[in-house]
Design a protein around this nucleic acid. Sequence first.
DNA 1: ATTGTAGTAGAACATTTGTTCTACTATACT
DNA 2: AGTATAGTAGAACAAATGTTCTACTACAAT
Lengths: 187, 187
Amino acid sequence: MRDKEKVSAFYTEHKRMPTYEEMRMLFSVASKNTVAYRVNKMLEEGFLVKEDGKITLAQVGSVMVLGTVQAGFPTSADEDIDSELLSLDDFLVDKRGATFMLEVMGESMVEAGIFEGDLVLVERGKVPRKGDIVLALVEHEYTLKYLDNEKGRPVLVPANKKFKKIYPNPHTLKIEAVLKAVIRKYR
Amino acid sequence: MRDKEKVSAFYTEHKRMPTYEEMRMLFSVASKNTVAYRVNKMLEEGFLVKEDGKITLAQVGSVMVLGTVQAGFPTSADEDIDSELLSLDDFLVDKRGATFMLEVMGESMVEAGIFEGDLVLVERGKVPRKGDIVLALVEHEYTLKYLDNEKGRPVLVPANKKFKKIYPNPHTLKIEAVLKAVIRKYR
DNA sequence: ATTGTAGTAGAACATTTGTTCTACTATACT
DNA sequence: AGTATAGTAGAACAAATGTTCTACTACAAT
């Protein structure tokens, strides 16, 4: 395992950068200067960056972003694919503290590709627009529906032909949050 | 904004904990001891933890995990919902460096709730099992299909009635990766 | 064989870190 | 009024941090 991977692994495990002393042990070297030497290289390569005198990873993320499914992996000849690293937290969460994860119950949004058991990320306080999928409170029940309007009145539209549109009382209707993302996790 | 939020915000922005001096400025206090005093409280409350003499956030994450959609938000009377914080990176990525994100092209998996434009997280090197959705290389083209077998021979099964099963040559079939998650992101 | 270069080692160094001490202030309680 | 108590301030502190210096080694190039 190369230095870079060790540093990355340390960061993922401890949620912070290793100190020079810790790197000295990670790299299995005897001198702190050797660490400084290698750290400098990583700085030059752009793998690490220095901000306010503190050394940090240039890219904190956990997934490599490739192109499309059809394109697949870059011809695996060159083994180290150093495309962009992405943090899913940064990618999917705009407003920390206002973003919540809920599990989907029911089949009312199957045609929108939202199945029972899926996880949804919703953001509170976001202004809902027509066409958004929203988490609404109707008749003391929370439900996930498309938001639309007919003649100025809000309508909650399910994405399942078997379900009916809901015409809630505009005054009691409460849009709790707006859908930001759907996540389906496999084993 | 309370201390905790300031520390969290600093962490999200800088990907590291603030030093005492930085906290002193964040909290707008004059003495470093005041910082130590408040840090101690946060340690007692369990908001921060000390590992190897280093202070870190007890929970590094960006989304609050709630129950089901039906349950919705805890009766918003008590405004600060301090349920568990989750990091999507930790949640969705097992093997850092072996996990890739690709964009879905085509409609061959719509019935599995995987639409064109969705993002998939795949893991390389994972041993594929029957029933998994896999990223396979057939006829020099990458494709996303269910993996099954008939009479010991591998079959790639689309989740769309309009598409046909694929019976690839077992010797040339290459399973590049296994599907770990599907992500659909809205505006 | 000599020269050059990349990497390592070990020590010395100035800063900065987190900690600890005493002292002061404000507020609430009796 | 007096007395706790929680919070802040400022200074002093030891320990650890990242940096810098010189010296040594191994290998490659000419």
